[in-house]
Nucleic acid binder design. Structure first.
Lengths: 151, 151
DNA sequence: TTGAATGCAAAGTTTTTGCAAAAGC
DNA sequence: GCTTTTGCAAAAACTTTGCATTCAA
């Protein structure tokens, strides 16, 4: 749940490895975009990241932001989540994190949670249907304690 | 899991009630679209429904298909699901069905399942975070037994 | 008759792509 | 120097909207 600002080395290392393997390059824009993405709260849309970069006096094209996020997705470093209003956000895919989301329909707050037992039951369901599971997405929608009062 | 072709009266009744309450009307196109939607397998996109209607010698505009599906959504009769490739599909929201989805990444087959215990644990998680839950979405991605062989 | 529904085409959104110029290695 | 990346604008994909016409009650 906590933001860990240090300890993103693994991210850059995996990225370097991916770029090398795929014969791709670093670039000023690419690095700026990724730095800002890592600094921002997770669950960021391409548009939000783009605006943020403009505030910081960098001005990559929106296309470049998309291309960079897609690169990270291909590298398996971020995950793209489609929310039900059709918008999508990106989040860092830490190799050891298995969290799901509680989403407030009023204020759009996103809370992460982990539940071992739910994970275990999912495995069971998959096994029962002879599925080989690669990932899952569990989203609980509702109203958070703050917003519930104002309804 | 079985398709129940009879017993859609509740759907039409709720629809009638909603239309009356909102001072909206029935129409030939609207009814054709809804009939075809109910006859098709669930998890149908607007575009698929539109093509199907053309095959059946009805030719509502695509906009009308969208408008009708949105009407059903407003009426609380269907649910729109965003799949991870950015496309969205609609499915009947039976008042007593709490099912989730196993989705094959190879053949795009969708299998529904129900798991009481997962539901119960979700409630617990929500309670722990003081969330008032309204709905949830659980999707398990992987490869089905058929496709796993071909990998 | 009066408001709602339709069809069409135009406009919106979000994301991707083509291409010439610039940058990385 | 050769290949990748960038920026821009154009295109794509999906969905909504505006408006004149048709339809339902």
């Amino acid at each position: 749940m906590e933001k860990v600002l240090a300890g993103q080395e693994w991210f850059w290392e995996k990225l370097n490895h991916y770029l090398a393997k795929s014969q791709l390059k670093h670039s000023k824009q690419r690095n700026f975009i990724i730095e800002e993405f890592l600094a921002m709260d997770s669950h960021v849309s391409a548009e939000e990241l783009y605006s943020q970069l403009k505030n910081r006096d960098h001005n990559p094209g929106l296309a470049t932001v998309y291309r960079t996020l897609n690169l990270l997705k291909d590298a398996g470093l971020v995950d793209q989540k489609q929310f039900s209003d059709g918008k999508s956000v990106f989040e860092v895919m830490a190799p050891d994190s298995h969290h799901d989301h509680l989403i407030c329909l009023s204020c759009h707050k996103v809370i992460e949670f982990e539940n071992e037992e739910i994970e275990r039951l999912q495995e069971l369901v998959a096994k029962k249907h002879s599925f080989k599971l690669t990932k899952h997405s569990l989203e609980l929608f509702g109203h958070c304690s703050d917003c519930v009062k104002t309804l």
